[in-house]
């Protein structure tokens, strides 16, 4: 896997006139995982999107916000990024042309092999989440941003996601997980975004 690290400084988020949080600094180096917790509405998803470069960061005062990744970034959020109208196999095949294929054993482990002929719109919430995870694995990005990766998953699948994150970090990747649910991962750092709320 390529080198992976994140250095983010002075991140703030403003939605309209309202400041959600400010002064967030995050540093992650290869192999580290961070569990982002906060009550609803504090801005976990916004922070994830700022880190992904999809939303601009704001700064209340002081030095400008700054996000620096080493290596590509993969994002998993409530938007699965798969064509609703196509069978799962074809929807994943599109991403395979951009990113490279999803390993067969990952598809099997996620229980997706029998679903490849099923149109994405007929998949359940949990199945869509697992399909999005397969897409993320296929992307082969060293840095992962996972926004509520356990939502809609059953107990077995939750344990599987923890294994996948563990293996990703063990291979030298970084991972930030925003989740309300407890995660049992070794050496998991924890950050409470509510401490930065305004």
């Amino acid at each position: 896997m390529q080198a992976a690290s994140l250095l983010a400084r002075h991140l703030g988020c403003r939605r309209g006139d309202r400041w959600l949080f400010h002064g967030v600094d995050i540093a992650l180096s290869s192999g580290e995982a961070l569990h982002l917790v906060a009550p609803n509405g504090v801005g976990k998803s916004s922070l994830m999107r700022i880190l992904a470069g999809l939303l601009p960061a704001s700064t209340l005062d002081g030095p400008p916000a700054h996000v620096e990744w080493n290596g590509a970034v993969g994002l998993l959020d409530e938007r699965h990024g798969l064509d609703m109208g196509q069978p799962l196999g074809e929807a994943l095949a599109f991403w395979a042309r951009l990113d490279g294929p999803v390993p067969q054993d990952a598809l099997a482990a996620l229980g997706l092999t029998p679903l490849l002929d099923v149109p994405v719109r007929y998949l359940s919430t949990g199945q869509k989440k697992r399909a999005a995870l397969a897409r993320l694995i296929g992307q082969n990005a060293p840095n992962w941003l996972l926004d509520e990766p356990l939502n809609g998953l059953d107990v077995d699948a939750c344990a599987l996601v923890e294994d996948i994150i563990y293996e990703h970090c063990a291979a030298g990747g970084t991972c930030i997980i925003a989740s309300h649910q407890p995660l049992s991962l070794p050496d998991l750092r924890r950050m409470d975004l509510a401490e930065y709320a305004l």
């Binding site: 992904a52 470069g53 999809l54 590509a72 970034v73 993969g74 994002l75 959020d77 938007r79 699965h80 990024g81 798969l82 064509d83 609703m84 991403w95 951009l98 990113d99 897409r135």
Partner: peptide
């Protein structure tokens, strides 16, 4: 947009 494809392309 709803399915997040534009987000994923931007990330790449």
């Amino acid at each position: 947009r709803e399915a997040g494809l534009f987000d994923q392309w931007a990330l790449r």
